[in-house]
Nucleic acid binder design. Structure first.
Lengths: 323, 323
DNA sequence: ATGAAAGCGCTAACAC
DNA sequence: GTGTTAGCGCTTTCAT
């Protein structure tokens, strides 16, 4: 009976007629298998969960969209859970350790949840992460990009355009994170200043980007940067907005670079120049190969980055910036 | 044993000491309950799923975020599934009928899935919908807004600003949907033209909004509209982008109104004037009261709408439009 | 106040 | 090729 419904009637040993008969009966009775019972017995749910810190961030919305398409193709259900803090990450991961899905794509990362990731693995849930820290349990493939190179790429683009006073806006208040390090490295390589006041923080949202940018603009004259590198596209969009409100024309008078290469950046005014990468596609494939073939998987994938040049930096530095 | 872990040790009849003992043992053994087994036995998973057509649409991303917060508070896990077509909606709803969650918040609607909604109900899964059609099974609360009034609200705002040639961009190719009807009603009430060529369609994405807007702009001179009402904020953002590329200044030379009142509209350049509503909050509350109290629930909730006036329409009609 | 047993709805393994 | 059985890991119920 269950052989038919599982779609393995052929490979097994059932006559077409019987299969037909079973299917009709199921349809007539409006039969729906109980996923819970099925998963409990067969130890497989054919479902995965993508865990993201926020869906407001178009980067993660895009990751989910891609996972969704890929899962549909492979016959997996994909669902999404959002974990916006360490506590909610713990909650979500504990939940997932309860074997409600076969695999987890982790878009959140923080050291204090690594114990739970180990637990997930221990319970047989496959795992892959997008950009995790160094202490990630070794069995988990980490699909990452070189954030430091990305920071340098963005900053060098700005430098190449003639900017010397380049700000940085981010959610992190510390100055040890890798995008910052790349930004710093690029600036120092040219002997440019790296002033404290060109570093501004805000929440990792459009509003937070606006806040951070506003604090950068609070500075006057030569102290004020002529360009800014934003932690991600989300914050860059906030920055663009504040610049517009301040009457500063981008890119004529100010340049902005984002990070993540989200497609929404093609629709901002001006369109956003941004550091692009394809972590998501790789991560999704890796996770599914773990599920389907229980394949030996590399521990670390470093996906290449590139710069998508759109409008927000212009080709050269404008009048305002020179002043 | 399970009494403790379910957190009902007190209400039952277990001594504090025993509870403590059990908890310690659980922690030591790294015990994680199997959700599948638990759900199977207790017929409740304390989880809900929000089904949305797309997460690129900030409106749905916001719905999910709110559901997430509310769920956290109530001790429910919330997950999200995306169903971008009728087939994938059927797939998702069938999946959900397998009792993997207690409740479903439906952000997708189409007549051909109503049989599956019935099935969900039949299997004891609570359901609430955001804006469903008239033939929705009667047991399902429908949290909706008056789309027609919304269309009229947007259009009248434009009319009030002096526009007479007002276009409409949407994903729907038919002219029977309610936002269109509202737009039409407003225009006809003033005796204004309602030309075929002012109606343009594109996919329900930023790119689709851009396509539709581009086809509107293909028209010359007096045939060209001076304002456009977009089906939603997503398409409006696409329209804004095309207008920018065409060198048409918004709001000086052209006006745009969106729909949904998403917060991203506050960050576009220019910031988007849009029809706002709060379906989501109400829907989430309704769904949870069904889950928690098995309360008798109204069949239909009509949530009020309003207009959020930002920049994209200006205060008056510009020079270009007059020409 | 506690331990033991039954069984949720399935599928895997085994007998025919 | 087809019917039967055991049991996945829990919670609920019943017996002590």
């Amino acid at each position: 009976m269950s052989l038919v419904l599982t779609g393995r009637g052929d490979t097994a040993r059932l006559s077409k007629a019987t299969q037909q008969r079973v299917k009709e009966a199921a349809a007539k009775l409006n039969y729906v298998p109980n996923r819970l019972a099925r998963g409990l017995r067969s130890r497989a749910t054919r479902a995965i969960t993508v865990v993201v810190p926020s869906l407001q961030n178009p980067f993660f919305a895009e990751v989910v969209g891609q996972a969704q398409e890929y899962g549909d193709e492979k016959g997996y259900s994909v669902n999404v859970m959002v974990a916006s803090s360490v506590e909610s990450s713990r909650r979500v991961l504990s939940y997932l350790a309860g074997r409600s899905v076969d695999g987890v794509l982790l878009g959140v990362d923080s050291e204090p949840v690594y114990d739970l990731i180990k637990q997930l693995l221990g319970r047989g849930v496959a795992c892959a992460t997008l950009q995790a820290g160094a202490n990630l349990p070794k069995e988990v493939p980490n699909i990452s990009i070189d954030l430091e190179a990305g920071g340098a790429l963005a900053t060098n683009h700005l430098i190449g355009l003639g900017h010397t006073r380049i700000g940085y806006i981010t959610e992190f208040t510390n100055r040890t994170h890798r995008k910052y390090l790349g930004y710093k490295r690029a600036l120092e390589a040219k002997g440019f200043d790296l002033r404290d006041r060109w570093f501004a923080t805000g929440k990792n949202t459009m509003a937070g980007g606006a806040d951070a940018m506003a604090s950068l603009l609070g500075q006057s004259g030569l102290d004020r940067p002529t360009a800014v590198f934003a932690y991600n596209d989300l914050m860059a969009i906030g920055a663009l907005r504040v610049l517009k409100e301040a009457g500063i024309k981008v890119p004529h008078d100010f340049a902005v670079v984002g990070f993540d290469g989200t497609s929404v950046g093609a629709f901002t005014n001006p369109a956003l120049t941004t550091v692009t990468h394809q972590r998501n596609a790789v991560a999704i494939e890796v996770l599914f190969s773990m599920l389907e073939h229980a394949k030996k998987i590399l521990r670390k994938y470093e996906v290449p980055i590139s710069l998508t040049i759109r409008e927000s930096c212009g080709a050269s530095i404008g009048a305002f910036a020179k002043g």
